[in-house]
């Protein structure tokens, strides 16, 4: 039965991919558009991003501004503040996404014609890109649910949780060692 399910999954996957191919516009992947456009826009995108990143990150995700607003401003201003920060955070996230996309598109435009293409390297790059997209999706979900301040708070909590877990594991392993040491040999 599992064999039949695998075969059905293969058939459905093929149908899905063909649907994707059918939907894909030929203009979107028009021959010259991607490489040249990317070559031209990439350096400026990197540069602009590099200039803004330090300032942006701490303001968006840091708790300082939020704590100030929380203590000194009325509710309406707090709501407005959170809403605007959320929008900026989403914009920042889209910048990250487009940065990764530009990088991979430049690569694709060059590598698809290359004779020296290395499958392992290609796979690694594809996984890297995929992981960035996944992380972006996770951050976007947290942003959407709890706002920009929640991102660091949540990461902090997860970090704390993993620290606790590590501590517990260490304790447990020490306990095992201790019980091993205290065991009276017969």
């Amino acid at each position: 039965m599992s064999g039949a399910l695998i075969l059905l999954a293969i058939a459905l996957l093929l149908i899905g991919l063909l649907g994707l191919l059918l939907r894909r516009s030929d203009f979107a992947s028009s021959p010259d558009a991607s490489p040249l456009l990317c070559d031209a826009t990439a350096p400026s995108a990197y540069q602009a991003f590099e200039q803004r990143r330090g300032e942006l990150l701490d303001r968006i995700f840091g708790p300082d501004d939020w704590e100030f607003v929380l203590n000194h401003a009325p509710k309406r201003v707090q709501r407005l503040f959170l809403q605007e920060r959320k929008e900026i955070a989403f914009y920042w996230l889209s910048q990250i996404r487009s940065l990764a996309k530009i990088a991979i598109r430049i690569h694709i435009a060059h590598s698809r014609k290359s004779d020296e293409l290395r499958p392992v390297l290609e796979l690694r790059l594809a996984i890297d890109y995929f992981m960035i997209r996944v992380k972006c999706a996770i951050v976007a979900a947290i942003l959407w649910l709890g706002g920009p301040v929640a991102v660091r708070r949540m990461i902090k909590q997860v970090g704390g949780l993993s620290e606790e877990l590590r501590g517990m594991l260490e304790l447990a392993s020490k306990g095992d060692a201790l019980s091993g040491e205290t065991r009276v040999p017969r």
């Binding site: 990150l57 990250i96 940065l99 951050v139």
Partner: peptide
């Protein structure tokens, strides 16, 4: 191909570093 791949990896690492910094 090698240098293009190197540049791409650098770009992806940079994007990932920005993302990690925010988190």
């Amino acid at each position: 191909y090698q240098s293009v791949a190197r540049v791409t990896r650098k770009g992806l690492h940079q994007a990932r570093a920005f993302l990690s910094k925010a988190m």
